[in-house]
Simulated assay, not measured.
Amino acid sequence: MEFKASHRLQSVGEKYLAIQQANINQLKKSGIEVLNLGRGNPDLPTFAPVVEKAKTALDNKVNHGYPPYGGKPALKETIKQFYQREYQVALEEDEITVFSGSAAALTALPMALADPSGVVLTPTPAFFGYHIGITMSGAEEWQMPLLERNDYLPELEKIPQAVRERAQMMFLNYPHNPTGAGATHAFFDKAVQFGLDNHIAIVHDFAYADISFEHQAPSFLQSKRAKETGIEIYTLSKTFNMAGWRSAFAVGNASIIKLLKAYIQNSVGGTFGVVQDASQYALETQIEERKQLRDTYLDRRNTVIQLLKTNQLSVSQSSGTFFVWLKLPEKITDDRRFAKSLLNNAHVAVVPGSAFGDAGQGYLRISLVADTATLASGINQLITYLKQYRE
């Protein structure tokens, strides 16, 4: 007996990266080596001291039982200290909740905050995950175009009044996936005021908080009155190469935190105590390791950008994240077709910009989660293929 997916699950659709990975797997089965510059998963291991801390925590019998919902008090205290040290932001106990990976929270938030009659504002291009929770909630998604001429910041003043009146929440994400753009304190001040004026919950996805090159990426909560209207989602996946650990937390508006905690408590439950102890240790101690990781990504970014610019290709500087945003030559009108052709014929995987929304059409996202030699080889093959490609 075979059962069909619910309408809700069908509406989500299949992720582009899952489709691409299936294609890559088929090529590998044929004995073809693929240079994968499309991944969003760190290629380097979790910092060794964090792993050792987890091994010790595994012997603690307390961690063998159900973990406390919303996080251990000791981890919450460390999060307070971390935000005070890094961003000069003071937090209270009820302004923090811990959960297993940021994807769980990003999916949960529309279901906790949005109604089927409501609107959720999202950037485009953007991380695929925002769409999933909105679709599951039944709310309407209204996309805010992020354009190069505006430094990939949404023009909030252009959101129609009728949309503002129905909007219940807004997703933001800086440093931005996929463009690598950064936000300013001035923009976050503007976003806070927009949230206050329109009674909209602002959710800042701070996934790439620590992968910022020219200067420290600002926290949304550094803006005055930010906690009155929004929260920030911080994941340890990128900062500490802990993607597989599924460790993240939210900080900010106490009422949003309460709703998020309640939804996660009634769905996915708590986060394994060993992961919480390792996360606490990481936040407290790994300052030098974080710097070394940033330097690694900076070196990789510079290698990729230099190769692309030397060949007269238009590429954004990428102020953060581990992605580079490449504008395709005007002769190429279909970025998805090009990306598929590049994979099947030159055996280099990248993600077409339109996979992140219509505003990404005509671009490619190149990932920096590979060693410098692999990146250089992949970029050179991309450049060669661009010169010979015909639609």
Rank of each mutant, 00 (worst) to 15 (best):
G244C: 03
S100V: 05
V274M: 07
V274L: 05
I257D: 02
Q10L: 13
Y152E: 12
Y16S: 05
S212L: 01
L75F: 05
V120A: 00
W325A: 12
M144P: 15
E232S: 02
I24E: 11
F47E: 07
N60G: 03
I287T: 09
F127I: 11
V12C: 08
L364Y: 07
T271A: 04
P110D: 04
F249T: 08
G378E: 13
E284M: 03
A139D: 14
P218I: 15
V34E: 07
I159K: 11
Y130Q: 03
T46G: 02
T374L: 12
G353V: 06
L368M: 11
H199K: 15
T122S: 03
F188N: 09
L382E: 03
V62I: 12
I332F: 09
S367R: 02
N23F: 11
M242D: 00
L221A: 01
A139V: 14
L326T: 07
D59C: 04
L172R: 04
Q168M: 13
L75S: 07
E148R: 15
I19F: 10
D358I: 04
F220G: 00
P42H: 09
E284K: 03
A373F: 11
S319Y: 02
H7Q: 09
T321N: 06
K61L: 05
L44I: 12
N241K: 00
F213V: 01
S137A: 12
G360Y: 06
Y87N: 10
K327H: 11
E33A: 11
A373N: 13
R85P: 04
L75A: 06
M169P: 08
A243Q: 09
K80Q: 15
V119Q: 00
D189M: 06
H347E: 02
M1K: 14
T239I: 10
A250F: 11
R365Q: 12
G182S: 14
Q286K: 05
G180H: 10
A282I: 00
P160D: 08
L308R: 05
S117D: 09
N344C: 08
N63T: 13
L382V: 02
E86A: 12
P218T: 14
I231H: 02
E155T: 10
